[in-house]
């Protein structure tokens, strides 16, 4: 049980940590000052939630069987963020995709936000009090995130010809990474059975409804569900992941065991 809970919590955390890292790359380079503020705000929200989840994952792991422990004490948020390798990260591939143009950044967030909001709403009813509390803190932010990415997607889709084309291209490129958000496996099944994780099919339904609503208002075409990428939850990432971690972890790893 605690092993599955550790893995499940880590998955939730890794999605947010890596998305936050990507959004942080925009800082100072946004298309307009207001969006610089919005993007750093998002990066900060995702990071805050990731930190809570990582800290909790470390505590869960600390209580688990000794074999699950990598170090003497429970791993801290920083141990988990800075000292794991590519294959130990369990985020979906969607969040590690490069920022690309602003349409790609907005679409990537939109696809994620439309999943993250219903997930957080449902998770507030989790039988795990700590996850429910973390989700409770996130719902307000997640609501704003989805509104922000939806509004921009509508502006792009129904804006100029160029913005429409860019938004459609981003959607077509990134759609293949959405299947992974709703994958199930033994870990998720165990968590759902225990009342800890919500029913992923219901989250998918909510997500799909948001897709139809927003894409229709944006006059964009919903891509067909063709081949879906997989692997992130098992630590099989795209080639981007190594570079993300190299950048994120290098200072911390160069000075092992010190305080910052």
């Amino acid at each position: 049980m605690s092993n599955a809970l550790f893995t499940y919590t880590l998955r939730l955390a890794d999605d947010l940590l890596i998305l936050s890292q990507r959004l942080g790359e925009w800082c100072g380079h946004g298309p307009v000052l207001e969006e610089d503020i919005a993007l750093t705000n998002r990066a900060l929200d995702h990071l805050g939630e990731a930190r809570n989840l990582l800290t909790y994952a470390g505590q869960v792991e600390g209580k688990g069987p000794a074999s699950a422990k990598a170090t003497a004490g429970p791993r801290s948020e920083d141990d988990l963020a800075y000292l794991r390798l590519e294959r130990q990260f369990t985020n979906v591939k969607l969040v590690e995709q490069p920022n690309g143009d602003y349409a790609h950044t907005i679409v990537r967030s939109f696809l994620f936000d439309a999943y993250h909001l219903p997930l957080m709403q449902a998770l507030t009813k989790s039988s795990d009090a700590q996850l429910a509390a973390i989700a409770g803190k996130s719902v307000k932010e997640a609501t704003y995130h989805l509104r922000h990415s939806s509004e921009w997607l509508i502006r792009f889709g129904d804006g100029t010809e160029e913005s429409h084309q860019r938004a459609q291209a981003a959607l077509d490129n990134l759609w293949t990474y959405t299947g992974e958000l709703f994958e199930s496996d033994a870990v998720l099944e165990e968590m759902t059975k225990a009342g800890i994780a919500p029913d992923i099919a219901a989250i998918r339904e909510a997500w799909s409804k948001t897709m139809d609503q927003v894409l229709s208002e944006a006059t964009l075409k919903r891509p067909a569900d063709a081949f879906m990428m997989t692997g992130g939850r098992k630590g099989l990432h795209s080639e981007h992941m190594g570079f993300i971690l190299a950048e994120m972890q290098h200072v911390t790893r160069a000075f092992p065991g010190v305080e910052w």
Binding site: G24, E25, C27, H29, M248, H250, W260
Partner: peptide, 24 residues
């Protein structure tokens, strides 16, 4: 902003993000 992606702890990363957001 150059150091947001490389901040050596998550706490420092969060503080730096908030700071650069203030500058904007």
């Amino acid at each position: 902003g150059n150091w947001i992606t490389r901040a050596p702890s998550l706490k420092r990363k969060a503080i730096l993000l908030a700071k650069v957001q203030d500058e904007a």
